[in-house]
């Protein structure tokens, strides 16, 4: 797009044909590329399933290795029974998924509620930050699962403990990213706010927060994927409903095709979660 730089307002009404032709050409190029990538994907997929079939089918291991055919059967079975509610211990995959999502979203949401304001504070105040930094640096590299026994001991509730573990997993990326974001805010924005004699509330909500938003969204995105990684492992231990519990249960029943299906579902849902939170980036202003 050409912007009028002169003082005379001349909107580019009659956009010439040359850029239009160029745009048409690049559109054509893009759709051609799309056809190629789709073909390549199908090729890889067929190759992958073939190798999978060759290495697992006819293996004399008592049917432990999941074959593509067995996995496909299990997948259709699990999907038809997805909403089954047959007693407390026999529920469809949907309810496991919902249980996991619930824990992740609760723990992640609580972490965001704590980490964003704390990050804004620590990013603004060097003194408070330097005082708290040793805690952050030592606690951050600890696997969130290490908190699990402590959670069980103190909270005495497996559900709460799982949420607590997710909280501990999600808080660090948000906190670190927010602090970093505040530090990167153009210092002239703050000079401007000062010279306008704005009050603290305006300075935080109208200048600091919007300017830090890109970094916060990056932190939220990292935190949510970390939380989704951790929940499966946490649920293997705390039990109840949930994808992790489901996977562990199926392992105990030596039902490996179910585990493959669960892996695909976990991956797919993780992908959708990441994409949804990435939508927040649309709110983020262009610099």
């Amino acid at each position: 797009m050409s912007l009028p730089t002169s003082t005379a307002p001349t909107p580019p009404k009659d956009s010439t044909t040359a850029p239009e032709a160029l745009r048409h050409r690049s559109r054509l190029q893009r759709s051609r590329n799309r056809v190629r990538t789709t073909a390549l994907f199908l090729l890889f997929f067929i190759g992958f399933v073939s190798v999978w079939h060759i290495t697992t089918a006819g293996l004399d291991d008592g049917g432990l290795a999941p074959t593509p055919a067995a996995t496909w059967d299990r997948l259709t079975e699990m999907l038809t029974d997805a909403f089954m509610l047959d007693g407390p211990n026999n529920v469809g995959i949907f309810y496991h998924l919902v249980a996991s999502l619930q824990r992740v979203l609760l723990g992640f949401g609580l972490a965001a509620l704590v980490a964003v304001p704390l990050g804004l504070l620590l990013g603004t105040s060097r003194v408070i930050n330097d005082g708290l930094d040793p805690f952050i640096q030592v606690l951050r590299p600890v696997s969130p699962l290490a908190w699990l026994p402590l959670g069980l001991a103190l909270l005495r509730d497996s559900q709460m403990t799982a949420i607590f573990v997710i909280f501990m997993a999600a808080i660090w990326p948000i906190l670190i990213s927010t602090i970093d974001g505040v530090r990167r805010v153009n210092p002239l924005f703050l000079d401007l706010a000062k010279s306008l004699e704005t009050d603290t509330k305006t300075r935080i909500f109208k200048v600091l927060l919007p300017a830090t938003l890109p970094a916060i969204v990056i932190g939220l995105r990292t935190a949510l994927s970390t939380a989704w990684l951790v929940i499966v492992a946490a649920e293997m231990i705390v039990g109840g409903r949930g994808m992790g519990h489901f996977v562990w249960n199926e392992w105990n029943a030596l039902n490996t095709p179910s585990i493959v299906v669960a892996i695909v579902i976990i991956g797919g849902v993780g992908f959708v979660l990441d994409r949804s939170i990435a939508q927040l980036q649309r709110l983020v202003p262009k610099a």
């Binding site: 401007l192 000062k194 004699e197 200048v207």
Partner: peptide, 29 residues
């Protein structure tokens, strides 16, 4: 002893808040 609205500053680089339109930037002031 402190910045004041009685001193209007134009900075060397534009200091427009990028999430606001030109009009909103003036309105903000």
């Amino acid at each position: 002893d402190a910045p004041s609205r009685e001193l209007g500053i134009v900075f060397q680089q534009h200091v427009l808040l990028p999430w606001m339109s030109a009009r909103q930037n003036v309105i903000f002031a």
